[in-house]
Structures are given as structure tokens and as C-alpha cells.
Simulated assay, not measured.
Amino acid sequence: MLNRRDVIKRGAVVATVATGLSGAAGVAVYGAQGGSDGPAVAAAPGDDHTETYKGRVIKVTQAGAGHAVSIDGKPLHLMKLGEGAYLSALCHYEVARTPLHAARAAVDELHGANLVPLGDASHHSM
């Protein structure tokens, strides 16, 4: 007979597996998507890459141990996850396999709007 604790544990395991699978599906989708004005070249460590994607200039440069990414000269905040996956501040529910793919997803999410860089102040201050 299952008690309440066992049911909660199993639910947490199922939710974790489902989240992992949806993240893997997102990586697969971004890996298969085209739509770039240029060749789909991923920015490898040590490489600087600039491309125009849907009319926006994306620049990926090596910055210390990570990458600096900008869209039209404005910085895009990226968080590196384990094993080479990236999340952007704009698409924080979608996992990208490279900083370039994260920047392309951010351009898609912007729908033509300008990127507003994250400031040093918190969202509660004015």
C-alpha cells in the first residue's frame, strides 16, 4: 500500500523526467531548425561569430570561461547549464545547445522588439 510520502516521491520523479524530456525535445527542435540568413554555424569555444538572423545582428564572442552574446549591440544575458546547454533571460524555459542558438531563440521571442539589457538594479527598484 502506498502512503502519501511515496506518492509525492513518485510524482516528483515523474515531473523531473518529464521536464528533462521536454528540455531534450527543445534542444532537438533548435538543432533541427533553420531559418537563418546565413549558414547555421555554432559558436565553438574560442571562436567569435557574427551573423544576421531575421534582420538582427547577433554577435557571440569568447569572454573568459564563457561567451558574451549581443543582439544589435545590446547584451543578452545567458546562463550556462551543465554539459553545454544554455538558457537566456528571454527564453528561460527553452534549453539551447549553443549560445548562438540561444540568441536566435531570443530574436524569435522578441518578435521585432528591441532587446532591453538587464540592469544592475533589481526589478523592484526605480
Score class of each variant (00 low, 15 high):
Asn3Thr: 14
Ile8Phe: 11
Ala12Pro: 00
Ala12Arg: 14
Val14Cys: 07
Thr16Lys: 14
Ala18His: 02
Thr19Gln: 12
Gly20Glu: 06
Leu21Cys: 08
Leu21Ile: 12
Leu21Phe: 06
Leu21Pro: 00
Ala28His: 10
Val29Gln: 12
Tyr30Val: 00
Tyr30Arg: 15
Gly31Tyr: 11
Gln33Cys: 05
Gly34Asn: 08
Gly34Ile: 03
Gly34Met: 05
Gly35Thr: 09
Gly38Pro: 02
Pro39Ile: 00
Ala40Cys: 02
Ala42Phe: 01
Asp47Trp: 01
His49Lys: 08
Thr52His: 11
Lys54Thr: 01
Arg56His: 15
Gln62Pro: 12
Gln62Tyr: 03
Ala63Trp: 11
Ala63Ile: 03
Ala63Thr: 09
Gly64Tyr: 10
Ala65Ser: 15
Gly66Met: 06
Ala68Thr: 03
Ala68Asn: 11
Ala68Glu: 12
Val69Asp: 11
Ser70Leu: 02
Ser70Tyr: 03
Ile71Glu: 03
Asp72Thr: 02
Leu76Ile: 06
Leu76Phe: 09
Leu76Asp: 10
His77Phe: 06
Leu78Thr: 08
Lys80Ala: 12
Glu83Met: 14
Gly84Tyr: 03
Ala85Met: 02
Tyr86Trp: 14
Leu87Cys: 07
Ala89Trp: 02
His92Lys: 12
Glu94Val: 12
Arg97Cys: 00
Arg97Asn: 04
Arg97Trp: 00
Thr98Asp: 05
Pro99Ile: 00
His101Leu: 04
Ala102Val: 01
Arg104Asp: 06
Ala105Phe: 07
Ala105Arg: 15
Ala106Val: 05
Val107Leu: 05
Glu109Gln: 11
His111Tyr: 06
Asn114Gln: 14
Leu118Met: 11
Leu118Cys: 09
Gly119Ile: 07
Gly119Gln: 13
Asp120Phe: 04
His123Val: 13
His124Ala: 15
Met126Arg: 14
